Simulated scan of single mutants.
Amino acid sequence: MATTALATTDDFRVFPATHARFGDVRTMVGPKNPTSSVCWCLSHRVPASLNRELAGAERADFVEALTRKRTKPGVLAYDGDEVVGWAAVASRAELPFARSTKIPHVDDQDAWSVWCIRVRPGHRGRGISHVLLEGAVAYAVQRGAPVVEGYPVDNRGEKVDLTMAYVGTRAVFEAAGFALAMRTEATSAGFPRVIMRRDA
């Protein structure tokens, strides 16, 4: 699995979610019950109808197939050999966000989206979301993205429910060099969502 890290800190390294790392993808986004029809980070990757159709092991198979493609479905953060984080990243044109009315397009550029950031329990508060975001941007740039955007909550320092925290916060994106591009009509966990952008 030797490959150059997309982003590094003294403690963490970020790599693309290749097929060889599919077990780590499962650790980060697979449900505890393999027959469950939830997560696998598909709710914003595929149309709602397909997300409902994919059940149990079909969801795992779908994501495994994504890891075999030339463009990987996201990036993984590691503390040594232990996977500790995941960020989903893809061209917005390939996602349901392409047709979203609540999260509008800023302009006609082929923006890439980072819409899910997850850190394993027991590892939060260590800056992993920051290095994940850097790695996701680096991967998008490698794949030709002219601009990268996210849709975090603008929570103004208030606590965000952990089940909805995957969208990220405005402060995390600002720390990674993103700037506010647009406010939206979308909300998450009771907070307004904004479009944050960073040029490649």
Rank of each mutant, 00 (worst) to 15 (best):
R26I: 07
N33S: 07
A136N: 09
R99Q: 14
D79M: 05
M164I: 08
T184N: 02
P121I: 04
D81S: 09
R68Y: 01
D108N: 06
D24R: 03
D81I: 04
S129L: 03
P31E: 01
H44Y: 12
I103K: 07
R45V: 12
R120I: 02
R13T: 14
G135H: 02
A88F: 08
D81W: 09
R126H: 08
V63W: 06
V63Y: 09
A87G: 14
R124Y: 08
K102Q: 13
R21F: 13
V194W: 10
A111Q: 05
A7G: 09
V137D: 12
G85N: 14
E94T: 11
E94V: 05
V89I: 12
V172W: 15
G150M: 11
L50S: 13
R26P: 08
P104H: 03
R45Q: 12
E185P: 00
T187P: 05
S100M: 01
R99M: 14
N51T: 10
S37P: 14
L180V: 10
P192N: 15
F22Q: 02
K72R: 06
G190I: 10
A176Y: 01
D110C: 04
R143E: 06
T8N: 03
D108H: 03
M182P: 09
R21E: 14
I103L: 14
A189V: 03
F173I: 02
E174D: 05
K102L: 15
E158S: 10
V89E: 04
V63I: 13
T67C: 15
E174H: 07
D11H: 07
V89K: 00
V160T: 06
P73Y: 06
H44S: 12
R52M: 14
A138N: 07
R183Y: 13
V106G: 05
K72L: 07
V141K: 13
L6I: 02
H130K: 04
C39T: 09
D11N: 08
W115V: 07
F12E: 05
A65N: 13
A200R: 06
